[in-house]
Amino acid sequence: MRDVRIGIAQINPVLGDIEANVDKHLEFIRRAVDDKCGLVVFPELSLTGYVLEDLSYDVAVDIKSSAINRLRECSGDVSIIAGFIHHTSDHQFKIASAYFEDGEIVHVHHKVYLVTYGLFDEGRFCAPGDRIRAFNTKFGRQAVLICEDLWHPSSMVIAAGDGADIIHAPAASPGRGVSGSSQQLGSSRTWHDLTRTYSQMFVNYGTFANRVGYEDGINYYGLSQIVGPDGAILAEAPADEECLIAADLTDGALRRARISTPLRRDEKLELTIEELRRIKTERSQ
C-alpha cells in the first residue's frame, strides 16, 4: 500500500434530507482536505440517516443521481467513502457505501448482513448484498464492510483473503446497555473489541466510522476509531460530537506487523475452502 493519511467524518446526518447531508459531507470533505487526508470515511447511511423505515424508498438514489454526482465531483481532492440507500435498476433498495476516487466510483458495497432483530428492522425495507470484494485504489487494496457485516467473522476472512490492507466499517451503532459501573456503553465496548481484534488477527488497518446524534429516541454514540495492523488505536473520536479524526497509515508499519505476526502468510485458504465445501455438501445431504 501507499502511505496515506485517512480521516473519519463522525457526523450527525439529518434524517431523510439528502441535500442537507450532501452539504454536510462537502463541509467535512473540505476539512479533510485541509487536514491533508487522502481518504475520508463517512458512517453508514451518512447521506440519509439511519432509522428510515418507509423513508428508505423516498431517499433511495441511483449512482448517477445529482447527490452522488456532487460527491463524485470533489473526490479528486480526497477520496471518499459515503453511505446511502442504493435504488438499483431492478428496483431493489440496498444499504450501500460507495468509494469515490478521482471523479469515479471505484466500488460499491451493499450490506450483506441486514439486521432484522432487536431494535433493527432493515430486512423489512431493504434487500441484502450478495458479494464481498476487496478492490484496488490509488492507495492500495481496500474493502468496505457495513456495520453488521463485521459481526460475521466470515466477512473479514473474505475481505482479508481478498488482499485488503485497509478494511473499513462504516456504522450506525446505537448506544444501549449502561449496566453496572462499566463507564462504557455495552454496544461501544463490543465494537471496540471487534475493531481491535480483527485488525490484529487479520493484520490490516481498520476503521470504525460511527455516527452521532439522536433518531426517534436512539442515541448514536460516535467513538469512531482508526486502528493499526498490530491492534493499536491510532485515532479515536470523542463520544456524541461531530468531528473529524485522522491518522497516518504507513506501508512500513504494515510491513513490520506482517513480519512479526505473519498470520496472513500462514493462512490456509485452500484448507478453509475445502472444509467449507465439505460442510456445504454434508449440510445439503
Binding site: G118, L119, G177, V178, G217, N219
Partner: peptide, 10 residues
C-alpha cells in the same frame, strides 16, 4: 430515550 438493551416499543 433508549438506555437499556430492551426498550419499550423498540
Amino acid at each position: 430515550a433508549k438506555i437499556s438493551e430492551r426498550t419499550i416499543e423498540r
